Simulated assay, not measured.
Amino acid sequence: MEDCELDAGTVEIVKRSRGRHVIRTLYDADADFNCFGRAPIGTYMLATLPRSGSTFCAIRLWQTGLLGAPMEYLNFRIMGDLFQRLGYRPDKDGHIPSSQVGAYWSDVQRLRTSPNGMFGYKMFASNYYEISKKFPEFLQQIAPNYVVYLTRRDEVGQAISYSRAQRSRIWFGGVPDAPAVDYDYEHIKACLRSVEEQKGFWESVFGITGTDPIRIFYEDLLEPEFSTVTSVLRAMGIQPNPKSAITVPMTMRQTDGVSKDWRERFLEDSCREAEVNRDA
């Protein structure tokens, strides 16, 4: 972002896709703030689960111009482009050397802290677990001032979406020629268990670290007045300011009739299985 003056009007991130999916452009230099000039005043982690609308949420928070750009900077396996841009060379497993993780984090904060001094990052339970095992000393460095915990009330819908994404390997809308996958009751059940286990993992982390997260739901983010985003700002002691808003490209929502059909079939199969188990 070339213009970091809040009173200069809306700052627009220029989308230069060149055939790339919009999600990848959100890690480009065009999307950097790069204007705060020192360590962040405040930090937060967007703790979340797969298929909970986390990218949608992250962009909504980003669009305020007051909450940094909370993307997946610690999901090392998808950070190849950013590593290269910042001059880091990952190993064969997609990680940068442990001796460089701290410097990488400082570079990301320098580029992605919003003008008011706030820096955010998105974290899945699997990424947090991996870091705790491979870079345990790094957890202290990334410890945030706040945690925003995003979940989804509709766990069945989440599990269906999770099942489709895992098997098609398509995690974002707008991907051309996305492969179709068949309904699989057992796989959806496994995804539902995984969602519950990941939620349990986060609750354990919150308990161990003494964290009282700001809890929000994906469904509430769909409300047009964005009251949920306002509540997040206020929970962090930040005064909402429409003049600070910036334009950030939004990814396409993945919603279609297939998921609706799968839901009906899944609920029917669940009832049938419950009856069999009851009669056994």
Rank of each mutant, 00 (worst) to 15 (best):
E5Q: 11
V11G: 10
E12G: 02
S17C: 09
L26Y: 03
D30I: 01
F36Q: 00
A39G: 03
P40I: 04
P40H: 01
A47D: 03
A47W: 04
T48M: 05
S52T: 13
T55D: 10
L61A: 04
L61E: 01
W62H: 14
M71R: 14
I78C: 10
G80W: 12
Y88F: 15
Y88T: 08
P90C: 09
P90Q: 10
S98M: 11
Y104G: 05
W105Y: 13
R112V: 00
T113N: 03
P115D: 00
N116W: 02
G120A: 10
K122I: 01
M123A: 11
S126K: 14
Y128A: 10
I131C: 07
I131Y: 04
I131T: 07
S132G: 10
F135D: 12
F138C: 07
N145R: 13
Y146R: 07
D154V: 03
E155Y: 10
A159Y: 00
R164L: 13
R167F: 05
I170G: 07
W171P: 07
G174T: 06
G174A: 09
D177H: 14
P179R: 08
D182N: 13
D182P: 06
H187W: 12
I188R: 00
S194N: 14
V195H: 06
V195Q: 02
Q198L: 13
Q198T: 06
K199W: 02
K199I: 13
G200S: 12
F201T: 06
T211E: 04
F217G: 02
E219N: 07
P224I: 09
E225P: 02
V229A: 09
V229R: 02
T230P: 01
M236L: 10
G237A: 05
N241Q: 10
A245N: 14
P249G: 05
Q254F: 06
T255A: 10
K260I: 12
D261H: 11
R265A: 08
R265S: 07
E268D: 13
S270F: 05
R272L: 11
E275V: 15
V276M: 13
R278D: 09
R278A: 15
D279T: 13
